[in-house]
């Protein structure tokens, strides 16, 4: 304590205090304004990453998104979308897009992990945006019951209660979520790809998102206790099954039953 009180009278103390005050208000301001950012950027990108990313961008993305990612008629500006958006879009194969359509489709990934990271680094360097989530948020070790409740209120209307996917207007759709990594699910929530709304941290807290991922991973790993889930599509697939398989087998039996024995 004595040491501290001595330093308090140091000529530079006022400057340090001023800096601390500025940092604090700035930090609070940053937290208040960039709620989309789940965490401070935990992935540190090197200058080399950004440089390599820029090269990749010019070669693969700039045709639609424009030089400097400022957007063009065929692709939106990527300034401020953040590393999370790049990691999601490129990491799930949606970007580069195969063709213009109602929405970008998931397809085999075009870039390896390093290249994706470099692209993300480049886009993140253009403007502040959501970053790739910390591994602790996507580990699937949260509260599945809470996640289930949040999922039903915020997600099930498009993605279906068992995450089997669903239709949107005019050819768009909400995809099934089985087989999607926790990181990509998290990134989709914070960035709102395509027509999906954005779920910022004020809407669903990082822990809530972790719970949702936990719920999805739990039901995916457990499967259905009743046996084959018939696509988890609900009464339509059940009806189709009973008409085709159920009645089909029974008709086969009736034909056997009423045929003459040889």
């Amino acid at each position: 304590m004595k040491a501290l009180s001595q330093k308090r009278r140091h000529p530079l103390a006022a400057l340090v205090l001023l800096l601390m005050g500025l940092m604090l208000t700035g930090g609070v301001y940053a937290v208040a304004t960039t709620l989309n950012q789940a965490k401070a950027d935990t992935t540190t990108y090197s200058a080399n990453d950004i440089k390599e990313g820029n090269k990749l961008f010019i070669a693969n993305c700039a045709t639609c998104h424009g030089m400097g990612a400022s957007g063009s008629a065929s692709g939106p500006s990527l300034v401020g979308v953040g590393a999370a958006a790049v990691d999601f879009q490129v990491g799930t194969g949606r970007m580069p897009m195969q063709m213009q359509g109602p929405q970008a489709q998931r397809k085999p990934v075009q870039f390896d992990a390093t290249q994706t990271k470099q692209l993300a680094a480049y886009v993140a360097s253009l403007g502040a945006g959501p970053s790739v989530p910390d591994a602790s948020l996507v580990d699937g070790k949260g509260n599945a019951a809470n996640g289930g409740e949040l999922f039903r209120v915020n997600c099930a209307m498009c993605h279906n209660a068992a995450a089997a996917g669903g239709a949107l207007t005019r050819g768009k759709f909400a995809p099934a979520l089985a087989g999607v990594s926790g990181q990509h699910i998290y990134e989709a929530m914070v960035t709102g790809p395509q027509n999906m709304p954005v779920f910022n941290d004020a809407n669903i807290t990082p822990n809530g998102k972790r719970d949702i991922i936990t719920f999805l991973k739990t039901i995916e790993a457990d499967g259905s206790p009743g046996g084959n889930d018939l696509g988890a599509l609900g009464p339509v697939s059940e009806g189709l099954f009973v008409w085709i398989a159920g009645l089909g087998v029974i008709i086969a039996f009736t034909i056997w039953l009423t045929s003459r024995s040889s």
Partner: peptide, 14 residues
Amino acid sequence: SPVSAGTQPDWYIG
């Protein structure tokens, strides 16, 4: 408040 995509009745009410 919630609803699931693919909300349908059983086949006979379909």
